[in-house]
């Protein structure tokens, strides 16, 4: 993975981006209503798959905007990129 296709700027060098970890983690609005185990799940537990991984990226040295990507973590091939708020693309599911 030498380049990443930013959905706003196009293909750019990986050095311009910062990894934001697993995507689509939902923070409960009422965190005080969660049990310790549920809170630990949100804070710490991760899918960490060997294969397709939906993740967040930040184009820190470019447009300074966040986006999501689906990447195969075994080959580091990026399968799809999509903007925040958009659903994970069908092709990559």
């Amino acid at each position: 993975m030498l380049t990443i296709p930013c959905p706003w700027c196009g293909e750019r060098d990986v050095h311009e981006f910062r990894s934001g970890g697993e995507a689509h983690l939902k923070r409960e609005r009422r965190a005080d209503a969660l049990s310790d185990a549920e809170w630990a799940d949100f804070l710490f537990l991760r899918a960490n798959p060997k294969g397709e991984h939906a993740e967040r990226w930040y184009h820190v040295h470019g447009c300074r905007r966040w986006f999501n990507a689906v990447r195969n973590t075994h080959t580091d091939t990026i399968l799809a990129v999509y903007k925040p708020g958009e659903a994970k693309p069908e092709a990559a599911q």
């Binding site: 990894s19 970890g21 960490n48 060997k50 991984h53 993740e55 973590t73 075994h74 080959t75 580091d76």
Partner: peptide
């Protein structure tokens, strides 16, 4: 910094 199993 990203999750990977690529050993590269």
């Amino acid at each position: 910094p990203y999750v990977s199993y690529s050993q590269r």
